[in-house]
């Protein structure tokens, strides 16, 4: 880690609490590192999980999201959705090897200028310790993460998390939290594998072995996921290279 490295952090602040708290830090002249590039949103619940990946892809060193404390949301419970979504994003960041430490979700109220300033200091330090984020070597992972988070399956699972675990379904059942977490983890892993395959066959046809090499997945896993992609019409046989079949992705 070089001493001069100054992280550049993409930051989403909700209008009512965190953005106001950041202004209060200013009014109180609380000094913190000039690392934040803030985008104001009305609610942290507006932050699409894809924005985190987008930020890293474009070259930010970290992504910081802050909203009202749980229970204080100006929109009643928007931040509970944020909590769910960002947990999945962090799970996926770990899965990809980029690591959850690149992203932070913190609550701060309109009265907590100091809390906001402290959060910025801590996260800046955390990113400084990790070093700069170069998206180039991670381009496959990042594209795959973007695809994963955009997949209807993940968006459905994440979007319905609170319906599944907090509210009763038509059979008067709620899903235990642990079961839900297990399903999400499994789905995230599968979707991420499929997404990686989709990315490598998006532009040119590839053999299963090539796919395995490029994605780092075992050949067996590649064939299994490729099969699933084929069934959904998202990949297809494009021809043969000698006796080796090659597959090409079908744009969704």
């Amino acid at each position: 880690m070089s001493e001069t490295f100054e992280p550049r952090i993409l930051s989403f602040l909700c209008n009512w609490c965190s953005y106001a708290g950041a202004d209060l830090a200013g009014v109180s002249r609380l000094q913190y590192p000039p690392t934040m590039r803030v985008i104001r949103v009305m609610c942290s619940g507006r932050v699409d999980p894809g924005y985190v990946i987008d930020g890293l892809q474009k070259g930010f060193d970290g992504v910081f999201i802050s909203g009202c404390h749980i229970g204080d949301c100006h929109y009643i419970d928007g931040n509970l959705y944020t909590l769910r979504r960002m947990a999945v994003v962090q799970e996926l960041l770990d899965l990809s090897g980029i690591g959850r430490e690149r992203m932070e979700l913190k609550w701060s109220s309109a009265a907590e200028g100091q809390v906001f300033a402290d959060n910025v200091k801590k996260f800046t330090q955390q990113i400084q310790e990790l070093g700069p984020f170069d998206p180039a070597p991670w381009s496959l992972s990042l594209s795959a993460l973007e695809r994963t988070l955009n997949s209807p399956r993940m968006r459905w699972l994440v979007g319905s998390s609170r319906q599944l675990t907090e509210k009763k379904n038509v059979y008067q059942e709620t899903m235990p939290e642990a079961d839900y977490q297990a399903i999400v983890r499994e789905a995230a892993a599968e979707e991420f594998e499929k997404a990686m395959i989709s990315v490598v066959i998006a532009e040119q046809p590839r053999s299963v072995r090539e796919m395995a090499e490029l994605t780092g997945l075992p050949v067996y896993t590649v064939s299994k996921r490729l099969n699933e992609l084929e069934r959904k019409g998202q990949a297809g046989l494009s021809g043969y290279d000698g006796r080796t079949p090659r597959f090409l992705g079908v744009p969704v």
Binding site: M42, G45, R46, D48
Partner: peptide
């Protein structure tokens, strides 16, 4: 509508957008 944008970030089809955001 209060304009929070939770629906937009949730929509599996990305069929919802927020004015001004």
């Amino acid at each position: 509508c209060k304009g929070c944008g939770v629906c937009a970030a949730a929509c599996p089809q990305k069929a919802i957008d927020m004015k001004h955001f």
